[in-house]
Every structure is written in structure tokens, then in C-alpha cells.
Amino acid sequence: MGDTDSKARLRRRVYGLAAVLVLQSVCAVFFVGDAIRDLHFSGLSGHDVLEAAVAVALVSGIVFGAIEMRRTIEQAGRAEEAVTIASGALGTMIGEHFKHWQLTGAEANVAMLAIKGFEIAEIAEIRRTAASTVRAQLTRIYAKAGVTSRSQLVSLFIDDLLGGPLPGMEATEETSSAER
């Protein structure tokens, strides 16, 4: 997915900015410390005015770098939030379907695990029941949902999630132009 790619890029950017900020801060403190020492030993001179200007430039560089950093972090945070909201919405939608099909608590649990891709043996292990129980529960779930297999069950939700007509399938000019 391009999503994780951009997230990794954002994270690299945040780390890079942080490293630059740290380096700048160390330089600024050393520089100012050195300038103060010069001042102490040799008194005020024209040279110090220049040094003061450099110090101001360094510190404002840190401040602006920090502001830029905050923007990047907030951007990364929003991206993560969007994923959380999307997965939250999917969870809500699945829950509503389960309610509509009148699944029992155990069945809803098994159905969720099945949708998440666990094998029958794994589900049995997680729920500490026999594989035959899980198989029977799955059969009842499929019957209630009106499907015959797990892949059909999953595709029910995918279908809902994608909503309207698939842009790639219907090669009408309307949809493709609306896409871009």
C-alpha cells in the first residue's frame, strides 16, 4: 500500500528534523557559551555584535525548525487517526451486520475471527473449543448471513465498504472522469 510508504516517509522526515534540531541546539549552546567566555576575557568589541547576530540566527533557526517539526508530526498524527477512524467504521459496520443476522455472542466472536482470517483450528484454539464446534458455528453463521463460504462472507463487507459501482469495472466515461 502507498499508505504505509508515506507514513514511513513522514516518520523518516520527523527523525531527520529531530536530529537537525538536536545538532542545532548543541551548536547554539556551545557558540553562546564560547561568546560569553570571550566577553569575559576580552570585553565588548565589534566582533561580539556579529557573534550576537549569529546566535540570534541560530536560535531562530531552531524555533522555525521546531515549528516545521510540529507540523510534520501533526500531519503524521492525522494520517494515523484517519486509519483508526476507517477501521473503527468498518468495525461498527460489521457489528451492525452481526446484529441484523441475529448472531449469538459466540457466533459473532467466531465470525469476527473468521473474517480476520483465522483458520478453523486456530479459532478453536483461541476459543478453547473443539474444531467441530467451530465448524458447526461457521455453518450457522453462513446460513444466517445467506452465504456459502468464508470468502463470500468477507466479500459482503468489502462490497459494502466500496459502496457504489466499481470504477475499474464499469468503463463508462462518466465514472472515470469523475474519478480524476
Binding site: 520527523v14 527523525y15 529531530a18 494515523e80 487517526e81 483508526t84 477501521s87 468498518l90 468495525g91 457489528g95
Partner: peptide, 15 residues
């Protein structure tokens, strides 16, 4: 199975 768990993934930033 509550899908909504709006916690931020990271608490402290790198700085």
C-alpha cells in the same frame, strides 16, 4: 470487539 479505540499510537514525539 469494540472497533473504536481512539487512542493515539505514540505518546511522545522524537524531540
Amino acid at each position: 470487539m469494540d472497533g473504536s479505540r481512539p487512542v493515539p499510537l505514540r505518546l511522545w514525539d522524537p524531540v
